[in-house]
Amino acid sequence: MLEHVELFFKSIFIDNMVFATFLGMCSYLAVSKRVATAVGLGAAVIFVLAVTVPLNWLLDQYLLRDGALAWLGPEYADYNLGFLSFILFIATIATMVQLVEIVVEKFSPALYNSLGIFLPLIAVNCAILGGSLFMQSRDIQTLGLAFNYGLSSGIGWFLAILAIAAIREKIRYSNVPAPLRGLGITFIITGLMAIGFMSFGGMLTGGDEAAQEEVPTTAQKEKEDKISEEANENTVSFNNAIKNKN
């Protein structure tokens, strides 16, 4: 239970898709001019991530990873189909998006009208594929955790696009230097927001060390790739640098 809670908050705030790993930036920048559309796209992203990450987890667990085919019989235990994961993940995502679109259109026209136009956009949203790839590289243990990871990363992305859309609606009335208008100032604001979100890093890295050791994810954290840890590591070294200065 505790690991679920931890993963949930970690994916929303600390490893926020937009602010820590820059996933889904294209649609984040393109569709954040108005709050209403941003909410629509954000909801669609939550939905698709919560569906595709568990699905790809199953694929990874029973088809792709080293020795995953052992359930077929001992002679298959040596196969490692990991190199196929990109193509299978993206195929799953594209198919799921199409399927979800058809189902939603059939059973809930109201939802389709609000989400529908965003669904095709999502097939090529890096946040979706990124969710699955991070799920794979962070070695998420159970199907429940994979679902949790998909859902909470989606919520994190939703929060980010909602916040930037609200700011952009207001900034229209401000006197921004002409060359920075539009895209430029959006980048800089996102950077400032990302700095703000970095302070959440202290929730896990700068907090109570004894409590952190009990957390079962420390072992899996070591397995994380360098770049995904970069944010955390840097926060630590940054915190240490500040400590040393003081």
Partner: peptide, 30 residues
Amino acid sequence: GFMLLSPMALIVVGLIIWVQRSRNKDLIEE
């Protein structure tokens, strides 16, 4: 050390956009 942290990438892109659009006024957005 701040330049190594991810948010600075966004700010650097923002600055590049600023420089580029100051040099070419046609690119300035409404």
